[in-house]
C-alpha cells in the first residue's frame, strides 16, 4: 500500500519531520490513518499498533506516530500508554501468559501455579523467555473463578490448572509453534 500524497498531506508532513524514523513511522501511520485524527481513537490506534508489532509492544516510534497524528505532546500519549496495563513499552514474547492472582485463584493454589510457570519457563514475572516465545505476567480476576486457578495465554483461557497441566500446555504451544 502506498500513500497518496494529496490524500495524506498530514501523514506526509509527519514523515518529513522525522527523517531518521521515516520507515517505522510510515508503517504505523498506515495502520492508524483509518481513524480520524481525534483523541477518542487513541486507544484503538495504540491497540492496533501493539497487535501489529510481532513483539506485542509499543516502540517509541509508535508513540511518536500517534502523538503527531493527534497533535498531542508525546508525554500525553506516553501517560495514556503507561496507565493501562495491557500496553507494554518493552518488547514482549510471541505469547503472553497472564496468571490470575486474585483471591479465588489464590485460595485454590494460584501461587503454586505461578511458581510452576516460573520454573517451567525459567523466567520471572514480567520477563521474556530467552527464545522470545513467552512473556509471563500477572493479572487481576479473569472472571472464570468457577475453574480456578486460571490463566490466560493470548486470548485463550485455561482453567483447573495443575503443575502437570501447565507443563502440557506449554509443551503443546511450543510444538504448535515449531510446526508452523
Amino acid at each position: 500500500m502506498h500513500l497518496q500524497p494529496d490524500q495524506h498531506s498530514k501523514v506526509l508532513k509527519i514523515l518529513q519531520k522525522y527523517p531518521p524514523f521515516r520507515e517505522k513511522l510510515h508503517e504505523y501511520l498506515k495502520i492508524i490513518e483509518k481513524y480520524p485524527p481525534s483523541r477518542e481513537h487513541m486507544l484503538d490506534m495504540l491497540h492496533d499498533i501493539q497487535d501489529y508489532e510481532p513483539k506485542h509492544y509499543l516502540p517509541r516510534e509508535a508513540l511518536m506516530a500517534v502523538a503527531e497524528y493527534l497533535d498531542l505532546p508525546l508525554a500525553e500519549v506516553a501517560s495514556t500508554v503507561s496507565f493501562y496495563s495491557m500496553f507494554s513499552l518493552e518488547p514482549r514474547g510471541k505469547h503472553i501468559i497472564r496468571v490470575c492472582i486474585s483471591p479465588p485463584c489464590q485460595a485454590l493454589g494460584g501461587s503454586t501455579i505461578l511458581v510452576a510457570l516460573k520454573d517451567a519457563l525459567n523466567i520471572n514475572v514480567g520477563d521474556v523467555t530467552s527464545d522470545g516465545i513467552f512473556t509471563l505476567e500477572t493479572t487481576s480476576c479473569l472472571g472464570v473463578c468457577g475453574v480456578a486457578p486460571a490463566m490466560m495465554i493470548d486470548n485463550d483461557v485455561y482453567g483447573n490448572l495443575t503443575e502437570e497441566k501447565i507443563q502440557r500446555i506449554i509443551e503443546e504451544i511450543r510444538r504448535r509453534d515449531a510446526a508452523h
Partner: peptide, 15 residues
C-alpha cells in the same frame, strides 16, 4: 502545562 500552555513534555505516568 495542559491548560495554559497547550501541552508540553510534562505528564503523569503509571497509576
Amino acid at each position: 502545562s495542559d491548560e495554559a500552555m497547550g501541552g508540553t513534555d510534562w505528564g503523569v505516568y503509571e497509576r
